[in-house]
Design a binder for these strands. Structure first.
Lengths: 192, 192
DNA sequence: GATATACTATACAGTTCTGTATAATATATT
DNA sequence: AATATATTATACAGAACTGTATAGTATATC
């Protein structure tokens, strides 16, 4: 993990961009808007981020890191037995989705705004989705589940579907049903 | 009376826009590009569609109608018993997703590009997602499933998750596992 | 043949966008 | 006090975007 010494202003720009990209869309948010909301100027933005694309990529990376760190922490402090982590996964996902600060999943929106598979932003989104699926697969493996990859894929579909539903309509309640479905799939995979 | 058929050019513009929106993104596709690819001029485009937003809304509506018609037809010609339709639903969804002409789901991408819930395009996307879920719920009801709405929501999550996965990486194979999960959920809901 | 209609060609107004150039100001270090 | 660094203020080049104005051409209908 490349930890970077970050100036307060750099971080402010990054956080502002994250928020604006989520609430207004990436292509609909100009750098002028970002610097105005962040309370700085374009010169400073372009000092820290060489292009808007570079800023987008960093926003996506930071968002994913923050989410993954939050989830790791939840799983490690609340659960001792590795076999239980997969069972509690959707409890924490529910907590995350229903949190008032939830604004959506970066890589899901980004991949829709940049549908071309050659595009670096699309490629990063795709990579993040794959890595999150692998993370679930690792949890399933540690829980001694046979078809860990298969279950992980199914759970990731429920996850992305629930996020999608919540992005479309806040307070959709989709995660409640995703959780039930996940429980059923996990129990089925364990008893195999 | 005089039967008013849709002008060939209007349809050409609509189809071209549908394709370009899916492959390049909506905000990244200018009207100049659309008319160039469609082989016409901006004057003609703005004759049939008053604004770009109007064009986007029509594209979304037509895409959803086309998909729903295709699916209705598949379900009605291949299945007689209403109780079997829900079981075959994901077979046809798989056929649709794995088809070479699959470019994604309009309302999923649109809602990501226009995340603001006040936006007419976002609202239409949300409505289409809700209506598709209601369509699944109707299938579940006709199959005498008790918690039809609950199952429909879960299946729609798998559906949107699988579409999302396929939009991110063509040939992901996600639909195969979505199908398995759907079967499990349907069987579980039937035996209640 | 005259006329309405559909469509093209082209230019352009006005806005917004990314990215840079240039000069001034504040802050920290020596 | 002198100097390097960070940041601001502002203007602007150049491109892309939506939407319109205007004039000309093709085609079908009367």
């Amino acid at each position: 993990m490349y930890t970077r010494i970050m100036s307060a202003l750099r971080e402010k720009i990054l956080n502002t961009a994250t928020d604006l990209f989520q609430t207004r869309g990436i292509n609909s948010t100009g750098v002028d808007t970002i610097v105005a909301v962040a309370g700085t100027t374009k010169m400073t933005l372009y000092k820290y981020f060489h292009t808007k694309e570079g800023l987008i990529l960093e926003v996506l990376n930071k968002s994913q890191q923050d989410f993954q760190s939050w989830l790791d922490n939840k799983l490690n402090t609340n659960t001792k037995a590795p076999a239980d982590k997969i069972k509690q996964l959707f409890d924490f996902i529910e907590e995350w989705i229903t949190s008032p600060s939830f604004l959506g999943m970066g890589f899901i929106k980004a991949s829709a705004e940049f549908p071309n598979e050659e595009n670096p932003i699309h490629q990063l989104s795709s990579k993040q989705s794959r890595e999150f699926r692998q993370f679930i697969s690792k949890l399933a493996s540690e829980a001694k589940i046979k078809d860990a990859d298969g279950l992980a894929l199914q759970l990731s579909l429920l996850f992305e579907g629930a996020v999608q539903a919540e992005q479309m309509k806040r307070g959709s309640g989709a995660i409640k049903y995703a959780k039930k479905a996940a429980k059923l799939l996990i129990d089925g995979a364990i008893s195999q």
